[in-house]
Design a protein around this nucleic acid. Structure first.
Lengths: 149, 149
DNA sequence: GTTGACCTTCCCACGGTGGGAAGGTGGAAA
DNA sequence: TTTCCACCTTCCCACCGTGGGAAGGTCAAC
């Protein structure tokens, strides 16, 4: 098994490869997070130069952008792992992707509804609070549970 | 300095005090979180029985319920600390509370808007995906950045 | 060669919550 | 009284996603 020979960084760059900083800039994922994704197994272990620097090709950067975009849409790491698996499986059924995305929309809806509930309550309380120099405050009364009492 | 003498749990209970489990049940805050709040300084250190059990009075439970309600409304630990300070300051200006709550509403709005943005995009993608046995999938195309290409 | 920007690994932090181990206590039933 | 179980204590570890920073090595430009 001829293991891939470890090249110098300059040589790798001549072949269009990037070090982690360049891959980060090209993908929008921080170097810190690239290492993290590698550690948790979301990314394959990156190649290394003779000096131990990670090197990335266009395909790696493409994967990183995929992850970035998925995070921007709120998918969890676990879901992104599944999405990556589907993306790389040419025999996938689009129904599987759609199901995953649909479930995620439901998750988003639940979180939105929760936040909106908070927002509604707070809006009401703020509306009731005169907000001047006096200490009386319906907001605190509500938090303290002394509002209805 | 006559430090408060450490009593037995049975004696404390006769005086209407509770151990952590009872305080948890009465406040809706888990025992785990009560200890955590004490550790981070959100709560004053609880009294102890001779055997080292934490004991809580009605006032403590009231504070715990205040915290619980604040968390339910999405306030951060830091904000809850501020709210507790205002609550316990009888010379507070309600304007301070109102400002804090208003800022929190703005935070909620930002998060809601973010989630709704994700939701909109996903909704569109899901709508475009036929979701059958074939591999072609606009959702993956979007994540991969090959959608517009 | 020196310098400064970058890389490596390692540990720590945040928010908030939970799980669980190991050992001590409380109270009630046998 | 002894036993038993539920509860208490402290301690460490986990999640997710991200960042900060220390200590040490490397690269490239000047």
């Amino acid at each position: 098994m001829p293991q891939a020979k470890r090249v110098e960084l300059s040589e790798a760059r001549r072949e269009g490869l990037r070090n982690i900083g360049e891959a980060a800039a090209a993908s929008g994922v921080s170097a810190k997070m690239i290492r993290h994704y590698e550690e948790i197994g979301l990314l394959a272990k990156a190649g290394r130069t003779a000096a131990g620097y990670r090197i990335y090709g266009d395909g790696d950067v493409h994967v990183l952008r995929f992850i970035r975009r998925s995070r921007d849409l709120g998918f969890t790491m676990k879901e992104i792992g599944e999405l990556l698996g589907l993306w790389q499986d040419r025999r996938r059924a689009s129904a599987d992707v759609k199901r995953l995305a649909t479930r995620h929309i439901a998750d988003l809806d639940a979180r939105i509804a929760e936040l909106q509930g908070m927002r509604r309550t707070l809006e009401h309380l703020v509306h009731c609070c005169h907000g001047d120099g006096r200490p009386d405050c319906p907001i605190l009364d509500d938090l303290a549970g002394t509002a209805g009492a």
